[in-house]
């Protein structure tokens, strides 16, 4: 599968729906036919949430699903931009740049995939799970969240996964504890052909270490603060074995084996 074959463009999107999913979490549906037709799993859009506000930069969001000319984005309210997004009524115009970045890829011959998501880490995995199911890849999802209310989009994943394992910090659903305990068990018991991880960086790092120990290839979707979103400003760099890469064009999905997680591992950091 080749991802990111389509060239990015500015598209004038409109909010078609905007629904609350849990406290501080919502799903916005944008009418954006050109981007919806072109976007690949794991790619993102750079959204100009409001014009005339005192925050001016765009905000990057993964596309959760794309269908019928529409994009669905799962978002969590963390600041001014996401607050404004949560308040956008249907009909609001919102321009975006997309599709952007390099998304997930499916290794040749993969028959069983493990998806590990922490909290809103499921956001870039909706299209991925649909794509894997279509290709006949058996999918196991390990999903962790603070509480059961935050285990988002369960129907989509239950419909497309062979197996779904849940964990919550408070034990309100699934196992009580971290999702990385689930991933460790599943990797040992099932030895998947490929692992996809998204969530808080420490979680991704733990999953990457588990994958390395088991000799399973692993991809991670990394978040960085982004200004341009198109590779020009060097705001979003990730330290890799192959030097500093831009998360917006060389990522956000990286081969976990290439990522240098600690600044001390990065030879480019001057002592």
């Amino acid at each position: 599968m080749t991802c990111g074959a389509h060239r990015p463009a500015v598209e004038k999107a409109t909010v078609a729906a905007n629904d609350r999913m849990a406290r501080g979490v919502g799903v916005v549906t944008l009418k954006a036919p050109a981007t919806a037709a072109a976007i690949a799993p794991g790619q993102f859009v750079h959204l100009r949430i409001a014009e005339g506000a005192d925050f001016i930069l765009r905000r990057p969001f993964s596309v959760y699903r794309a269908h019928g000319g529409h994009l669905e984005i799962l978002y969590q309210v963390v600041g001014v931009g996401t607050r404004a997004l949560s308040e956008a009524a249907p009909g609001t115009a919102m321009d975006l740049i997309g599709p952007l970045g390099r998304g997930w890829w499916v290794p040749e011959g993969a028959a069983h995939a493990l998806l590990v998501a922490g909290g809103l880490g499921v956001a870039p995995m909706g299209m991925l799970v649909e794509c894997l199911a279509q290709r006949g890849v058996a999918v196991t999802l390990a999903h962790g969240a603070p509480t059961s209310e935050r285990l988002l989009a369960r129907e989509l994943f239950e419909a497309n996964c062979r197996r779904v394992e849940l964990a919550t910090d408070d034990g309100s659903a699934g196992a009580c504890g971290f999702v990385t305990a689930l991933s460790e068990e599943i990797i040992a018991a099932d030895r998947p052909d490929v692992i996809y991880a998204c969530g808080p960086e420490p979680m991704q790092r733990t999953v990457a270490a588990q994958a390395t120990a088991a000799g399973v290839p692993c991809q991670v979707s990394l978040e960085r603060l982004m200004a341009c979103g198109i590779g020009a400003c060097l705001s979003c760099v990730v330290s890799t074995r192959d030097g500093r890469k831009r998360a917006c064009v060389d990522g956000p999905v990286f081969d976990a084996a290439d990522v240098l997680w600690e600044p001390s591992e990065d030879p480019e950091v001057r002592a």
């Binding site: 030097g243 500093r244 600044p263 950091v269």
Partner: peptide, 9 residues
């Protein structure tokens, strides 16, 4: 190689 991240605010 530039500075460490975060590089913008």
């Amino acid at each position: 190689s530039g500075n460490e991240s975060p590089r913008i605010a």
